[in-house]
Write a protein that binds this DNA or RNA. Structure first.
Length: 460
RNA sequence: GGCGCGGUGGCAGAAUGGCGAUGUAGAGGACUGCAAAUCCUCGAAUGCCGGUUCGAUUCCGGCCCGUGCCUCCA
């Protein structure tokens, strides 16, 4: 197996991955703020880092994957105020929906999924350390990180302090010592959730949670930190500042990985632009696996322009893959590891499009193979390759019977009855009648395929 | 303004200092009662201009076009 290389945002280059401890890899990925359904852009890093997680698990004996849930945030507070719902109700419901949506995309759950609200003491301790070491200060109920106090601030995003000031576009709070200082702790009004702290009742700023939870679950320095491109600045930059300054300069993570954006009609998909699709609404129109393939069809660092057409293409591709499995179902596949070509593609900074091309080649070979003993090893390769990328884990029958949420066509049993009637007509050489049945089903979204082993069907 | 990313067949999308994958769409054929699926065959691409080089899509420079970040963001 070839070396694993990773594009490290710190160096803007591909680097050979050298784990801190080859027997135990640590990975942290920023998770959702739970105030609303996940949109497809939120799902991209989850799917991408799930694929990396699967690769790491095959290459190393143990991997700890941590993905947090941000369950305290001003957007959540605002949502609760507007809707009249309790914050806990919103965060728990949204977390559950997130879990359901991500499971539908065939993502494995992380090993640890910490909640911010359960790590307040760790955040307070970290803030205390930063104050004690002279990197943070309290002012008017806030605690702020003093950016000029850190010499190397800006290494990840490659921004100098001067550039930050030049680009400042927000109103600068009067209690800040420096315009680029950011909040570690802020006061809560009586009607806002808050926790007692040495600086009064308040709540954490956005960035401190990840520093505190990463330290708690992965230690001071760990291997890989992932997230979307837009988190590089300010979120990850500030995480680095907090953690390094609290830990005498020790790195937070050795490798920083960032996925590219998802666009819709070439515009960034975002809640503020209101041009987003939620995962949930798309799952009503297409199988989760097709959504996953659409999200993985481009390299993880490149932008992906999502469209309904790209989703349909992904579904058609999976139809072909599952079709190969269905037509060779008689050849029992033993289990096998994914082929080296696929592992090499994934090990080269997660070249998923190339890995998918290898799957196409296996499918073609499987379709060409006539003898069961020839098919069996190819099936094994196909199933293993699919699992490596989070595909092909259901039965072909289940795949082809998938129905959208609005499914109002014939039931499985009705289809079987029609197929039997058509078979009788065919045997009587009553082709007008058999074609009428087939056309009738086709009009209802059911496609029949006559094969050597009988007639199969699928919902299109 | 500062920092950054990208431009490859109709579309999607890899790779590469020398034969430019893969999928899809398209054309033809095999198979089929007819289809569908599958298989076979075929046509089809490196934004523009320079430079380095025996050779550039790849490296360098310029230009054009698109796009992201610069304290809500995956």
């Amino acid at each position: 197996m070839s070396d694993l290389t990773i594009h490290n945002t710190l160096s803007r280059q591909k680097e050979k991955f050298e784990p801190i401890d080859p027997t135990h890899i640590g990975m942290y990925v920023c998770g959702p703020t739970v105030y609303d359904f996940a949109h497809l852009g939120n799902a991209r890093p989850v799917v991408v880092f799930d694929t990396l997680y699967r690769l790491l698990k095959r290459r190393y004996p143990r991997v700890t994957y941590v993905r947090n849930i941000t369950d305290i945030d001003d957007k959540i507070i605002a949502k609760a105020k507007n809707s009249g719902e309790a914050i806990d109700t919103i965060t728990q419901r949204t977390t559950q929906a997130f879990h359901e949506d991500m499971a539908a995309l065939n993502t494995l759950p992380p090993d640890i999924e910490p909640l911010c609200t359960q790590h307040i003491p760790q955040m307070i301790a970290l803030i205390g350390t930063l104050i004690a070491k002279g990197f943070a200060y309290a002012a008017k109920g806030h605690v702020l990180f003093n950016v000029p106090s850190m010499k190397n601030y800006g290494e990840l995003s490659r921004r100098s302090h001067d550039e930050l000031e030049a680009g400042a576009r927000v109103e600068i709070a009067p209690y800040k010592k420096d315009p680029s200082d950011f909040v570690l702790w802020k006061p809560s009004a009586k009607d806002q959730p808050g926790w007692d702290s040495p600086w009064g009742r308040g709540r954490p700023g956005w960035h401190i949670e990840c520093s505190a939870m990463a330290k708690q679950h992965l230690g001071v320095t760990f291997d890989i930190h992932g997230g979307g491109l837009d988190l590089i600045f300010p979120h990850h930059e500030n995480e680095i500042a907090q953690s390094r300054c609290a830990h005498d300069g020790a790195p937070l993570a050795n490798y920083w990985m960032h996925n590219g954006f998802l666009t819709v009609n070439n515009d960034k998909m975002s809640k503020s632009l209101k041009n987003f699709y939620t995962v949930r609404e798309l799952l009503a129109t297409a199988p989760g696996e097709a959504l996953r393939l659409a999200l993985l069809s481009g390299h993880y660092r490149q932008p992906i322009d999502f469209s309904i057409e790209s989703l349909q293409n992904a579904k058609a591709t999976l139809d072909k893959w599952y079709g190969a499995l269905r037509s060779t179902a008689a050849a029992r596949a033993e289990s096998a590891p994914p082929p080296p070509a696929l592992e090499d593609a994934l090990s080269d900074d997660l070249n998923i499009p190339l890995a998918i091309a290898h799957i196409h080649e296996i499918v073609s070979a499987l379709n060409r193979a006539a003898a069961p003993e020839e098919q069996a090893p190819l099936r094994a390769q196909l199933l293993a390759s699919g699992e490596a990328l989070g595909f092909l884990q259901q039965s072909p029958e289940a795949w082809f019977r998938w129905c959208p949420a609005t499914c109002d066509g014939p039931t499985d049993a009705e289809i079987e009855t029609q197929i039997a009637a058509r078979l009788a007509a065919r045997q009587a050489k009553n082709y007008p009648e058999s074609d009428r049945i087939r056309d009738s089903l086709a009009a209802q979204g059911v496609i029949l395929e006559d094969g050597a082993g009988g007639t199969t069907w699928r919902r299109g």
